[in-house]
Design a protein around this nucleic acid. Structure first.
Lengths: 217, 217
DNA sequence: CGAAGACCTATTGTATACAATTTGTGATCG
DNA sequence: CGATCACAAATTGTATACAATAGGTCTTCG
């Protein structure tokens, strides 16, 4: 968080992810510069980054707003993620050093613990989950892939809905990760790819049913 | 090209694509603002966009430079493009209206003509090729997909090398497009997907051998 | 009463001045 | 002679003032 632009990026991002603004809300650069505590110049830079990650969007006349995603759009995003992240897992499988697999295993044990709480500790689950997927993407060793995936994960709608996941959904996620770790230990790229693909597709359906429940309320 | 930032984006982009700067060259914001004829503020915005498309990159201390790509890295980029663009073709196949297919056919007949020239008109080939792929991506009707593909196509290294393509390479490309059009006319998503995948993989190999030839000189 | 147009206001876009940081250079010391 | 430090120059980062544009509102006229 060294430059003002980074500060602005982080603060605005948190502001959006914490759902302090609703989908459809308009935001002016001035409001954002108050939130971030810096002038409009670095805010503009931060907004460009957040647009790239689809956390903010602009109207045709360049007004900033918080986008909303339909279930269909989230479906499409998960489909893209599935293609790209299973490719990442495939590459990671032949690149991960044993100690890196150990590190991943540790992250997933934190995730397991979060799931076993009663009620499950969703915040910790999401954090461990993010770190797990980030590490896999990182291990794929492709800056392009990493950059692309950064814009597909951590969508507010997905994070918001996560609180509605059933305990069984969360448990299955943890088990998927376990199987991915087994594939990594075996250095089996095809296995890793298949597990990741099915993991993400399942995650989409968990999302869709949590979404459905939320919609009914 | 209405705003200064757009002007800057276009001019700097052309500057890079026209190979007026070499991979590895450093560029200062001031130099770029002279090239674009606007102040540093819109230049910075343009550079951020160009970074997103990987046409420019920054050092850890935020100096701007023109990146270079190894054959391996281009391989990886074509692999990503193959996944995403064959997915786009799959979606396009069930979405394209007959008159849109006609428009695509027209673009490809321009491409055919460019190939049949002696020597082939590579500039026109590349332009028609870009428009063809852009139209397919557009038809997939997924803003996310479109945004991602924008950063994978039109890499300087690929355009630069295109001049070394053999006439046979170019002809085959035109035939691939013809087959894609057939798949679109039939509304056959799986066919379209497969054709696009093989088209792009072939394109990579054409690139790789043109690259090899260039390297030997 | 409704539509069209002119204004006024809010918001984004750009230039510029200055601050902070990085890099290069040259002096100094071991 | 080489390393290290200090300082100077180049470059990027930020704030701010002003310009351009979009949006809304109020008036006027049919």
């Amino acid at each position: 968080m060294s430059t003002a632009a980074d500060t602005a990026y982080t603060k605005i991002r948190e502001h959006v992810l914490a759902a302090k603004v609703q989908p459809g809300d308009r935001l002016t650069e001035e409001q954002l510069s108050e939130i971030a505590g810096v002038s409009r110049t670095p805010v503009r830079e931060a907004v460009l980054r957040l647009e790239r990650e689809l956390l903010l969007m602009r109207t045709p006349s360049n007004r900033i707003f918080v986008p909303d995603w339909s279930t269909d759009e989230v479906d499409e995003m998960f489909t893209l993620r599935q293609m790209l992240e299973s490719h990442a897992a495939e590459r990671a499988a032949v690149r991960l050093a044993p100690e890196e697999v150990d590190a991943l295993t540790k992250i997933n044990s934190i995730l397991h613990k979060a799931v076993e709480q009663d009620p499950p500790d969703v915040a910790n689950f999401l954090d461990a989950n993010r770190r797990f997927h980030e590490a896999v993407t990182q291990a794929a060793d492709s800056p392009r892939l990493q950059q692309i995936l950064a814009m597909l994960v951590e969508q507010p709608v997905v994070l918001r809905t996560a609180r509605g996941y059933s305990k069984e959904d969360l448990k299955q996620s943890a088990r998927d990760h376990d199987e991915l770790l087994a594939a990594f230990k075996a250095g089996d790229a095809a296995w890793a790819k298949a597990v990741m693909a099915s993991h993400l597709r399942r995650a989409f359906h968990a999302f869709a049913s949590a979404m459905e429940k939320e919609r009914k309320r």
